[in-house]
Structures are given as structure tokens and as C-alpha cells.
Design a protein around this nucleic acid. Sequence first.
DNA 1: ACTACATTTCCATTAATATCGAATTATTTA
DNA 2: TAAATAATTCGATATTAATGGAAATGTAGT
Lengths: 97, 97
Amino acid sequence: MDLDTCAKALKELGHPSRLGIYKRLVRSGHQGVPVGVLQKELDIPGSTLSHHISALMSVGLVKQKRDGRTLYCIPQFDTFNEVMGFLSDECCVDELT
Amino acid sequence: MDLDTCAKALKELGHPSRLGIYKRLVRSGHQGVPVGVLQKELDIPGSTLSHHISALMSVGLVKQKRDGRTLYCIPQFDTFNEVMGFLSDECCVDELT
DNA sequence: ACTACATTTCCATTAATATCGAATTATTTA
DNA sequence: TAAATAATTCGATATTAATGGAAATGTAGT
């Protein structure tokens, strides 16, 4: 992961609603959470929520999978871990105490 | 650190120039880097750079300390670590392999 | 006091983001 | 195929962010 890619991901996580969405998704693990459940739990209007979800998808932090009428949002741990890796490698100090 | 505070910090890191600035500061450790050095190394116009720096300061990721005519930018590791802590605690999975 | 230097603040412009009701698309069930 | 449900896209508006030249501020040396 390079700096620009990392910055884009951080930008999308840098909004309280989107960070809340991602946090909620992580709680549920690999099976994901339906958009409608997010909408009720986080109390965000449908269209607004939809934009936030697609912002998270645009940087690979979330994917969707349809099951009948419901769309599940699934967190992409790999992408998140790459972001964490970049921050850890490039922006952390490792002082030998 | 709460979600809103974390989101604000991530938002500021979520810009390639600012992430680059922070990364550069971390490289230099506690003594910091003069604004002018950042300006030359990162090739950003003075006023633009100044805005980016104050954005990072507004969320506590950077502080400044004057020494004569030069202003040093000093990364605030504590704030950064709190951000990392929040992400690690609230947005990471800990699967027992 | 004057000049040079380092950086910020002012100011204006342009671009991007956030928001959400209404209309639309996709899917299921009767 | 019509109605119900789930979610997106459209469209319009409001707000915030990014950018950088020019003017102002603070500091040091002469």
C-alpha cells in the first residue's frame, strides 16, 4: 500500500458516520450486515447511508453481496489491515526504549 | 478517545500532503522539522503548507515550537497512538486463528 | 530603525463533500 | 402481473475544504 492509497482510505474513515458504519460491520464479522439494519441502528436516511457505503466501497474497505432483496455489507479486513500496516510502518516510532 | 475525535484525526491524515507531512515528521522524531524544510522537501507553497500544518495541529497530531525565526513542527505521538488504539480496539478483528 | 528572513493570515476562487426527498431499479411473493 | 420490500440513483442545495498569491506578523542581525 502506498501513501496515496492509504490517504484515500483514511479520508473515507475520517467521517463519523462512515467510521461508525465500519466499526459496526467489524462487530458482525464476515457474514456482514444488511443495509437496512445499518439504517435502523445508526439512524441514517437511506440515500445518505447509501452514499457513505459506496464511499467505503470505493476504497475497498467494504463489499456488498446480495441475498434476495437484502444487500449485505461486508467489511474487507485485508484492506483495513494494509492501512494499519502502512501507518504502523511509516508513521510510528519504534524507539528501543 | 471517542469515535468523533478519532474520525477528525483520520480526516486530517486522509489527505496525501498531510499524511506525507506527518510521515516526514515522524522520521525526524522529537526534535521536529522546520516549516521551511518541509516546504522545500515536499515542494508545497508556503500558504498551502501552513494550512495543512494547522489542520494537523487542530486535531493534536502536531505542535509547533519556535526557535528564533524558525518554527519547528513536532509530531505528537500520543495523539497518533490513541488513534491507532481506537482503530485497533474498535475496528479490528481478533480472531483466534 | 532598517533589511532580511521565516512563516502565517487574509482574501478570493474553485472544487469537492454531505445531505436527503423523490423517483427508480431489483427482487420476491401473492 | 401487481403489490410490497430493499436499496440505489437522481437532482438540487448547502456546507466545507483546498489552493496559492499578496499582505501582514514576528524575529534576528546590522
